[in-house]
Amino acid sequence: MSSDDELAERLRAGDEKALRTAYERHGAAVLYLAQRLLGNRADAEDVTQVTFVAAWTGRDGYDPQRGTLLSWLLGIARRKVVDRLRSAARDDRATETVRTQLAPSDDRETPERIVDRLVVADELGRLPEEQRRTLELAFYDDLTHPQISAVTGLPLGTVKSHIRRGMASLRRRWEVDGAAFGSRSAGPSRAL
């Protein structure tokens, strides 16, 4: 798997195959974010389309030093969602629509939360296989360290270190990409 740096370089050089790779890697996450925010599949697909086209035309603006490709793409998608809701509101002459559509039914479902979840999931997928499997047993199946050790046959000490290292990686990535998203890159879409 080529790194974000390499992909960014190929993108900047105008290599369309790099965009295709980015789409294969992150298209599903972009579509998921759009669908969660818009609540409508057709609009979400439109937003995904304009997001990747904007990523292509604005490819010079991506700097791997400032975040991963995924968070950059999700940032574009979020702005496109806002644009779409605003223009829908203009069309309806009812700003109320935006407020209703944006009001998260559940506190966890803020755009930040969805982005954080996608970023952490992406990082989880990049962890070494055994580390990832161990964390999934802890997260999804709510197993304790000794239970994970029993299920996997790994020594307890190994389970411990997998979980500690895995958690540290997730936290680092979340701080760089997730938190950056909410606080550091606070643009107009922060109000969303």
Binding site: Y23, E24, G27, A28, A29, V30, L31, Y32, E45, T48, R108, D116, R117, L118, V120, A121, L124, G125, L135, E136, A138, F139, Y140, M167, L170, R171, W174, G178
Partner: peptide, 19 residues
Amino acid sequence: EVAGLGAECQDVHDLPPPP
């Protein structure tokens, strides 16, 4: 926070590819 997000990852860890 990360543990909470990790638990939510189950929803997104195997997203279907877009058409």
